[in-house]
């Protein structure tokens, strides 16, 4: 799509969307959001860029192959599960290394641990998978219309 407005808007919108998507991932544990929603939002950013600049430009901008991103995501989620196995013998048990338990049983500190790693994994898997489908579809459609034009 060749539209000056779209391309200009994209330049602002895409980084904004990506930042928002990370924010949504981070706050998802306590407020609406999380890995699925954050990941989908990041995909929208990628899709916007791909529509404005073409799938090849979007691919270059991502730097890493989308399926690789998805694979890393799945690995991260699995690693979060194995963390629990190593420390406590239970797969996917929540681990909170930055929390300390006070003598009265209440906990204090930063609630960051395996659960956030898991949610990040979900985020990356959704982002990578959907981007991959999108790029492949656009490529196929482009190749198809190219041949028809011949």
């Amino acid at each position: 799509m060749n539209s000056v407005i779209l391309r200009t808007a994209t330049r602002v919108l895409v980084p904004l969307l990506l930042i928002v998507s990370l924010l949504i991932l981070w706050r998802g544990h306590n407020e609406p959001g999380g890995g699925f929603i954050g990941g989908l939002m990041a995909v929208i950013a990628v899709a916007l860029y791909a529509i404005a600049a073409g799938p090849n430009a979007a691919r270059r901008a991502l730097r890493v192959d989308p399926l690789t991103i998805a694979g890393i995501g799945l690995l991260a989620a699995t690693a979060a599960g194995l963390w629990g196995v190593v420390v406590d013998g239970a797969f996917l048990k929540g681990m909170w290394p930055l929390l300390t338990t006070a003598p009265d049983g209440s906990k204090a500190g930063l609630p960051v641990g395996s659960v956030l790693l898991f949610d990040t994994g979900v985020f990356l898997t959704v982002l990578g998978s959907v981007s991959a489908i999108l790029f492949a579809l656009e490529d196929a459609v482009y190749a198809h219309s190219h041949r028809e034009a011949e």
Binding site: V130, I133, A136, L137, A140, V141
Partner: peptide, 10 residues
């Protein structure tokens, strides 16, 4: 749906 679409297109 994405997979079905890819298959359909192909």
């Amino acid at each position: 749906l994405a997979f079905a679409l890819a298959l359909a297109f192909r």
